[in-house]
Design a protein around this nucleic acid. Structure first.
Lengths: 227, 227
DNA sequence: ATAGGGTATTTTGTATACAATTTTGATAGA
DNA sequence: TCTATCAAAATTGTATACAAAATACCCTAT
């Protein structure tokens, strides 16, 4: 019997730390990440720091440039569009398959996540709503039973969220629309209507592209012609 | 002016080396990769070796297990099925978009790749044919102009090829069928018929799943219940 | 003032030494 | 013969020192 307790190496702990920090916006896109700074922050040596950064590179949260170091990437507008096009296809795939494969328990779980997001909107808790919405997408993908699809979508989603959150301006009415579209997707999934679910999911993603583009564009502008 | 010549650090060179070695089958799936062994092979120290392995992990060519090291992964049958399901969707997406977006020059390039594969079959050069076929899929994806889609598909393809090549048994008639299906896809793309192209591409991928499963299964069997 | 160049400083890249963990293999006992 | 145990060996994880490259800064010339 070989029950191996979750091994927590120093580099793995550093990875978790930095992962959260980047998603929390403590390193802005485009900012260079100095290894020395992290060794002091985490109280560890450079070796596990570099290892953690290489692991973060797998999630696309940082990008390495030889002899210059790691930075949080700033995608071009074109790259963002490509991201969204791909994500739209995969979310559509997830919704289509979920309509066929989801168990009844999965459906009620999705319903509860949707309700949690609605409650977040009602009380004005943007963070709670965003988390519930992300969980909704994640759980929807899980209904397909395809772990590879789930992790692909997770990566695309976190990569996109980084930039969507840059501009909280001009989002009037957005949250309500998102909830409406999620409900639409969920309804089709519950009706076991694969094609309709796929369509509504795809549309939902492409709808949010404009907003993300706007946030990224303003960021490009303020950062100037990037070095 | 800042023209930066392609920087080739030691770890990057090691990465390229190992990448080719793994794809060439010099490390069998499941085999543990000893760091010491690589330092001697490449004449470098452990630090860049580990860095190269972390980079290879991004391509899913190796997987890290804490305190045990890196190994070429052996997917379960279920994981292989998930891979294929995802790849089928993405190849379908690529074919659909290519039908709309491909330039005339792209189409003739695809045609020449198909002819190269056919020539490979005629003269019995399996390697040349496999390379042409991979190039066909890669170029088809490139026609979409979506770089993210291209790299996602590249990763799935190399990951899958690793195991498809394990068993060269029972492939009678396979190569000819592959060429036939590629021709079918290409025809629809040239006709600018997106939906038909998508369908034929999807079918093409799912068709090859059975073969890959067989190769992987035999490998599982000979490796026994893996540690 | 500004542009260019060269040196000092900073930062990343690599090698090596040591610590922690796992694996191996031999031995003892059932 | 098989299993359990424990020490030795092998292997990975981390820290540190040094090398190489990039950046920052000052100085000079125009």
């Amino acid at each position: 019997m070989d029950i191996r307790v979750e091994v927590r190496t120093v580099s793995r702990v550093a990875y978790d730390h930095l992962y959260r920090m980047i998603l929390a916006g403590e390193f802005l896109p485009g900012q260079w990440i100095k290894e020395r700074q992290l060794t002091e922050l985490l109280g560890i040596s450079r070796t596990p720091v570099r290892e953690a950064l290489r692991m973060l590179e797998q999630e696309r949260l940082v990008v390495s440039i030889p002899h210059r170091g790691f930075r949080v990437p700033i995608p071009t507008i074109k790259e963002l569009e490509d991201f969204y096009e791909l994500r739209a296809e995969l979310e559509g795939m997830a919704a289509r398959l979920a309509a066929t494969r989801a168990a009844e328990a999965d459906l009620s779980h999705l319903k509860s996540l949707w309700e949690a997001a609605q409650e977040g909107l009602r009380v004005g808790d943007a963070t709670a709503m965003a988390e519930s919405n992300d969980a909704f997408h994640h759980s929807l993908a899980q209904c397909t039973g395809n772990a590879e699809l789930v992790s692909s979508l997770d990566r695309l989603r976190t990569g996109i969220d980084l930039y969507r959150n840059l501009s909280w301006s001009a989002q009037k009415g957005r949250p309500a629309l998102t909830l409406e579209q999620h409900q639409r997707i969920l309804t089709f999934v519950c009706q076991r209507n694969g094609p309709a679910a796929q369509d509504s999911a795809r549309t939902h993603i492409l709808d949010s592209l404009a907003l993300a583009k706007q946030g990224l564009q303003s960021f490009h502008h303020q950062s100037g012609p990037n070095e």
